[in-house]
């Protein structure tokens, strides 16, 4: 069913899910949301399955007119959100009625924002098991392209949202991230000790050549001694160093294979901070080992699981009816689960 119409296309707005996996063997980039944490949070807020398709935009959100009742959530980059010209909040569920109009002001902090829609997200036709748009291949989303004015978005109606009041997430909008953690990359040892040292000693900025394929950094490093490399698989967060020393961080729309040496790889727990890095913001890389990187990732996931559990908990008004005694115990158990957050 058509749930909304695009009345302004915003900037680089496309339909994304977690990504198109298991087709890199055929040369297809994974694509998918560039800030997976913000994407997942948006889906969590509207009680969606984790892989429900959402709209991703860069620097300016699209304007949408809704045709029926639903719930949405906006996450990611910090920007003014309006429903019928009234200021609305990011990082919480917004109730939407027929003929409501969603508009945005330009992004104030960060780069990529997400709009998730309740009851399963955008119901476009999956291509090769994913709804993610890959522009270069012309597949996914709406005919493999960016949103355009007049596009009709297929959604499900939604009248109810469990524990509506508690579905919000406190984001510290003022927090400045200046440290991005990395692990040694597969070609770390091909680099001169001076380059290895400078990677963590000097500061970097994201250049203006930054898109979903990758971010070029402004500051250069000593390139690896000329070694002819056969192309090999790439992963999200790989920091390639080109022949003239230019670092390029590979992101969602990266080519499946590459031939430049990779000095380091950003850890998954810091992907979100890196892709949202404000223009001109100086940051430094710090080196961590693999167990630390894994631990950080699992801790982060655990935190979101607890958040979801707390919303589930709020769904029931404790204590209720005859189950009063058990309910109190369950509540105590859940509360202890929440400690240490």
């Amino acid at each position: 069913m058509i749930g909304a119409t695009v009345i302004d296309k915003g900037l680089s707005a496309s339909i994304q899910d977690l990504g198109r996996f298991r087709h890199q063997i055929e040369g297809f980039p994974t694509s998918g949301a560039i800030d997976q944490a913000a994407f997942c949070l948006a889906n969590d807020l509207v009680n969606n399955p984790v892989n429900a398709a959402a709209i991703e935009f860069c620097l300016l959100g699209p304007s949408l007119k809704f045709h029926f009742r639903t719930f949405i959530a906006i996450t990611g980059a910090v920007c003014p959100v309006f429903v019928n010209a009234q200021r609305a909040e990011e990082n919480q569920v917004l109730e939407i009625f027929e003929n409501d109009v969603l508009t945005f002001g330009p992004v104030k902090r960060g780069r990529y924002g997400y709009i998730a829609f309740a009851a399963g997200g955008l119901l476009t036709v999956p291509v090769l098991d994913s709804r993610s748009t890959t522009l270069r291949a012309g597949i996914g989303g709406l005919d493999g392209r960016l949103l355009q004015k007049g596009d009709q978005l297929p959604l499900n109606e939604c009248y109810q949202m469990p524990s509506l009041q508690s579905r919000q997430y406190a984001v510290d909008e003022k927090k400045v991230v200046t440290g991005i953690r990395v692990v040694k990359g597969p070609q770390w040892s091909l680099f001169d000790p001076a380059a290895q040292e400078n990677l963590v000693k000097q500061t970097f900025t994201v250049s203006t050549q930054a898109d979903r394929m990758g971010y070029r950094l402004t500051e250069k490093l000593l390139p690896a001694a000329q070694v002819s490399l056969l192309s090999e698989g790439t992963v999200f967060g790989n920091i390639q160093i080109t022949r003239n020393g230019q670092p390029i961080v590979l992101l969602a729309d990266r080519q499946t294979t590459g031939g430049y040496p990779v000095i380091a790889t950003i850890i998954a727990a810091d992907f979100s901070a890196f892709v949202q890095m404000p223009l001109g913001q100086k940051f430094a890389f710090t080196l961590v080992d693999l167990p630390k990187a894994q631990q950080e990732l699992l801790v982060r996931r655990q935190r979101f699981k607890r958040l979801l559990a707390s919303w589930q908990q709020a769904r029931y008004q404790f204590p209720i009816g005859p189950a009063r005694k058990a309910a109190v115990k369950i509540q105590a158990l859940l509360a202890s689960e929440n400690e240490g957050d």
Binding site: F21, R22, L230, S231, E232
Partner: peptide
């Protein structure tokens, strides 16, 4: 297993 990328002499 999330994904695999076979290349010339490597498997990621």
């Amino acid at each position: 297993i999330v994904d695999v990328i076979p290349a010339y002499h490597t498997l990621t």
